[in-house]
Design a protein around this nucleic acid. Structure first.
Length: 302
RNA sequence: GGUGCCAUAGCUCAGUUGGUAGAGCAACGGACUGAAAAUCCGUGUGUCCUUGGUUCGACUCCGAGUGGCACCA
């Protein structure tokens, strides 16, 4: 019998956790998280990790498994999660992958190219050059080091330019030479489910969830990691707004409003990404029975 | 009950000496392979309250109505 990975994707706050748990219980299996922030043990309230009771019902992986103090990225996740899936599939015919980090889901389902991790020193140097010399200087260097990528890169997107440059500088090769646009074959079938509900309802859920986070002590949680605010892992909705408040730049009320707004925008961005994926099957978060029936039908056809 | 002021985008408000309108915020669409809850790009979405009148033409001027606010009773 072939192995099947059931992916539960969708915008933040739509209700992925609950659906994933019901599916995992139905298929008597475990859940692998594909959430790039729930992975950090220092973050609990602001990342809306599953509740204690939920975690007790079904075994979860990649929740609180890493630290914000160690750099993490989609490639590491690809390697670690695939390794884990290999083990889980020895035990189960289906495994549930649940989470909203678009690139992490793609890393599992399609794979991303192999290239070295960015050297923190080189990145820091490029960033400071961006400050002092401006983006044009970085563009000019990229044009010289990798003219092919220069043609296609978004020249206004500093993150992309910096990343391409750091790979060029570290390896002495072009960034393009690492880009093969892989569609890696996986030793399991993939069924992708994405959850969505009407926009007003989604916004309402997000707003209410943020209010609950604040009530549950999000401010204190943010205060605890405030000393490390420069870490990439903390450049995150629900934390950086508090840091701005702690720095005296905005009021507490503004911080909370901004967390809501930025969460809404993040949800929209996720929807844009998932919409583009033609392999996605859309459901309402209430349609658990339908999802189970759909998945079973898909499995039986394979 | 009387008088005055107001009514324009989802919200707060500009504006048009009469030629069907624009800011901020919110919202919406898109890009994306080691920062991805990141990073970047794009888009006004409108019965200018309703209804008569004047006018070649009314969102703008005039009358009436409706709703809101203020003051006087």
């Amino acid at each position: 019998m072939s192995k099947t990975l059931i992916v539960i994707a969708g915008p933040t706050g739509v209700g992925k956790t609950s659906v994933a748990i019901k599916l995992a219980k139905h298929f008597k299996t475990e859940i692998v998280s594909s959430d790039s922030r729930q992975i950090f043990k220092e973050l609990t309230i602001g990342t809306a990790i599953p509740a204690k009771e939920e975690l007790e019902q079904v075994k979860h992986h990649f929740i609180h498994s890493h630290s914000i103090h160690n750099n993490y990225n989609a490639s590491r996740y690809e390697n670690e999660a695939l390794e884990l899936l290999e083990i889980l599939f020895q035990k189960y015919n289906t495994v549930v992958l649940a989470g909203g980090s678009m690139l992490y889901i793609d890393a599992i389902c399609k794979g991303i190219d192999t290239m070295p991790d960015a050297d923190p020193e080189i990145r820091a140097e490029l960033k400071s050059r961006l400050e002092t010399e401006g983006i044009e200087s970085l563009r000019t260097q990229l044009k010289k080091l990798d003219p092919e990528y220069y043609q296609i890169v978004d020249l206004k997107n500093q993150a992309r330019i910096i990343h391409a440059l750091e790979i060029c500088l570290m390896t002495g090769k072009t960034f393009t030479s690492f880009r093969s646009n892989p569609n890696k074959k996986r030793p399991f079938e993939i069924i992708k489910i994405a959850l969505n509900t009407d926009r007003a309802e989604l916004h309402d859920r997000i707003n209410r969830r943020v209010d609950k986070m604040v009530k549950d002590g999000l401010e204190k949680e943010a205060r605890n990691v405030y000393p490390y605010k420069y870490l990439t892992a903390l450049n995150t909705v629900g934390y950086r707004e508090w840091f701005n408040y702690f720095d005296g730049e905005i009021s507490r009320e503004e911080a909370i409003e901004l967390i809501k707004r930025n969460s809404r925008r993040y949800a929209r961005k996720q929807l844009t990404w998932f919409r583009k994926d033609e392999t996605v099957n859309w459901f309402d978060p209430d349609q658990v029975e339908e999802i189970i029936a759909f998945v079973e039908h898909q499995i039986s056809e394979k």
